[in-house]
Simulated assay, not measured.
Amino acid sequence: MRIAIVNDVLIIGEALRRVITNTQEHEVIWVARSGEQAVQFCMNNRPDLILMDLVMPGMDGVEATRQIMQNSPCAILLVTASPEDNTGMVFRALGAGALDVAATPLITGQPGTDLALLSKIRTIGKLISADAQTARPASPRSNSSANHEQEPEVLVAIGASTGGPMALAKVFGQWTPPEDGAAVIVQHIDQNFTDSFASWLGDQIRVPITVIDESTRLARGRIYIAKTNDHLVMDGRHRLSYSATPLDYPYRPSVDVFFQCVAKYWQKPAVGVLLTGMGRDGARGLLAMRDAGKTTIAQDQTSSAVYGMPRAAADLNAAEMILPLDKIGATLRQRTQRNGE
Rank of each mutant, 00 (worst) to 15 (best):
L240Q: 13
L10Q: 15
I328T: 02
V271G: 11
Q37N: 06
D180I: 06
A98L: 08
A244C: 11
K170S: 15
R217P: 13
S34R: 04
I76W: 00
G202H: 01
N45G: 05
L287E: 13
R252M: 05
L94V: 06
Q70S: 02
R280P: 10
I29W: 02
V6F: 00
G58D: 11
P152F: 01
L232G: 05
I29G: 01
M43H: 03
Q174M: 01
D48M: 10
G272H: 03
S145T: 15
T108H: 04
Q24S: 15
E153P: 13
T276F: 00
L287I: 12
P137C: 11
V171E: 08
V31S: 03
I121N: 10
E341V: 14
Q40F: 07
P105V: 05
D230P: 03
I50D: 00
D8C: 09
S142Y: 05
G285P: 03
L240M: 14
S243N: 12
T123P: 08
Q150R: 08
G181H: 00
K126S: 15
D48I: 06
Y224V: 11
Q110M: 12
L316N: 04
G112Q: 09
A98F: 00
A64E: 01
F91S: 08
R2V: 09
T123Q: 15
V90L: 02
V262G: 12
A305L: 00
Q267L: 07
N147Y: 10
Y307S: 12
D281I: 04
I205H: 02
I68N: 00
D326N: 15
A103H: 11
Q299L: 08
V55G: 10
G125Y: 02
V262N: 09
A198H: 10
A4E: 01
D100S: 15
I20S: 05
M278R: 06
E84I: 09
I212V: 14
E214M: 14
I20V: 11
D190N: 04
T80E: 06
H148P: 15
A38I: 01
G282C: 01
T80I: 12
R284I: 14
A314T: 13
A64P: 11
D60V: 07
I5G: 07
I107Y: 03
S129H: 09
R122D: 12
L155K: 04
R217Q: 14
N147G: 07
V255N: 09
V90N: 07
D235F: 06
N71R: 08
D248H: 08
S161N: 03
I297C: 06
E84Q: 12
E179Y: 03
V186T: 07
T245F: 09
A32R: 08
V262K: 07
I205R: 05
G112F: 10
T104G: 06
I189V: 13
N147F: 11
Q67P: 02
V207H: 15
D315I: 10
D300P: 09
A169T: 05
I3N: 06
T216Q: 13
Q133G: 14
W30N: 05
Q299S: 08
S196T: 10
D8R: 06
M52Y: 00
